[in-house]
């Protein structure tokens, strides 16, 4: 049992690590289709990664060790996060090490490192990006925590495995509070992954960029690690969203016979989610930066409302 659960953990880890760029490619491809472009194909992120990995790293003269360590920290944090989110199976053996609060903590750790690294070289864009990133996150992070708290109140646990197990095993049950936190979660997902209403992953225009401004100085394998980490982060967020709001079709770890079905369900859900994300991004316009605090404040308050609703309606 124990060994088989560990094997499950290993399978999921490898799966997410390899799948993350593909998901990124799928979202980009969907967006290209929606914008009447042919697109580069779903395998493009892999090609970019390979290209970057084999390139030489060019460091700024004043780059400190912190700058060089950050891509690895970022990658490690995101890989761990993506590994621990229940995607195909609940009750993974290592999932107990990190509950939802700690998960938010790891994401914050990665973010703080990235923001610091952006300020390290001392360029105008770097510190601008760091400031904006922290601006977005100081409201997004509590919003995410409140979303988790609602789910935690529903299942009387902050452990992600237990939450998902409780939510799946209750059969069909409508949770009004989850409707609120679902909206809030979506807003946080968009903001934290540098998606359209908040940030545009495709622009290098100083008026708008947030994430890109922070990683301007990164090259070669460092940049590849950051891009990969970014893909893992998006996958982890989408996986979290699926686990909290559409947990159907998951298996328990150790149950090998149910694995193919769960895998299929997961991939279908991902395809659907990726297309939805692309659609959402195509339909909405990039907000002015000053509107972003309002957007995030809205997410935070919605998440708070979700908890209130939970207390009133008991569901």
């Amino acid at each position: 049992m124990k060994a088989s659960a560990l094997a499950f953990q290993l399978v999921q880890s490898l799966l997410v690590l390899l799948l993350a760029p593909l998901f990124l490619g799928w979202v980009d491809q969907c967006r290209a289709w929606l914008q009447n472009r042919r697109g580069a194909g779903v395998w493009q992120p892999y090609r970019t990664l390979v290209k970057l990995f084999y390139k030489e790293v060019v460091l700024a003269h004043d780059a400190s060790p912190l700058f060089r360590v950050t891509p690895y920290v970022l990658f490690g944090c995101m890989a761990l996060t993506a590994t621990l989110v229940p995607m195909v199976a609940t009750d993974l053996p290592l999932a107990g090490a990190v509950d939802v609060i700690a998960l938010v903590g790891i994401l914050a750790l990665a973010r703080v490192f990235l923001a610091l690294a952006a300020m390290d070289v001392g360029t105008a864009f770097g510190s601008l990006g760091a400031r904006r990133e922290m601006l977005v996150s100081f409201l997004a992070e509590p919003a995410l925590l409140m979303v988790f708290f609602t789910a935690a109140s529903l299942s009387a646990s902050t452990s992600l495995s237990t939450i998902v197990t409780v939510l799946t095993h209750r059969g069909f049950f409508l949770y009004p509070s989850l409707a609120f936190s679902g909206v809030a979660f979506l807003m946080v997902l968009l903001a934290e992954n540098g998606r359209i209403p908040v940030d545009n992953p495709e622009t290098h225009l100083e008026l708008t960029m947030i994430h890109e401004a922070m990683i301007l100085e990164y090259t070669g394998r460092h940049l590849a690690l950051i891009e990969w980490a970014q893909g893992l982060k998006l996958l982890a967020y989408v996986g979290l969203g699926l686990a909290l709001f559409f947990p159907f079709g998951m298996t328990e770890s150790g149950d090998w016979w149910a694995l193919p079905g769960a895998l299929l369900a997961f991939i279908l859900k991902l395809i659907f989610m990726g297309a939805g994300l692309a659609l959402l991004e195509t339909l909405s316009a990039k907000q002015r930066l000053f509107r972003v605090p309002e957007f995030m404040g809205g997410a935070f308050l919605l998440a708070v409302l979700a908890i209130l609703i939970h207390y009133l309606l008991g569901a």
Binding site: Y54, E56, V57, V58, L59, A60, H61, D62, A63, M119, V121, G122, T123, A124, F125, G126, S127, L128, A130, R131, H204, E206, L216, E217, G220, R221
Partner: peptide
């Protein structure tokens, strides 16, 4: 490989960086 070399910061190609331009 693990090669790296040092160069001036990129900063979107803007060459006249001074410390006062930081936040």
């Amino acid at each position: 490989h693990g090669r790296s070399r040092r160069s001036a910061p990129w900063d979107c190609g803007y060459p006249w960086q001074t410390p006062r331009m930081q936040d």
